[in-house]
Amino acid sequence: MRLTCPLCGERDRREFYYYGSEDYLNRPAPDAAPQAWDDYLHNRDNPAGVTRDLWYHDMGCSSWLVVTRNTVTHDILAVEAVADRKGGAA
């Protein structure tokens, strides 16, 4: 499996650390209801199909990435840097 890091270019999967669903980007407000925190930390759509998840270019540029890909075919559809996404900053 190869991911194209927006900075480093196409690299082997072994260079990346995997975190999980992009849900981890949607941090609830500190005073959000417990259900919101439960959903944020634990509950997942977990699709058999296209998903968006978080990878870290551990052995490369240290970018966190949002990868759009298919969990059935392993097709990689898009890779973008977490820091560069629109409205990404808190």
Binding site: Y17, Y18, W55, T73
Partner: peptide, 13 residues
């Protein structure tokens, strides 16, 4: 393999 998948197959790393 450390990435979410339903593919029943893995990769070389």
């Amino acid at each position: 393999d450390f990435y979410a998948s339903y593919a029943s197959r893995g990769n070389l790393p």
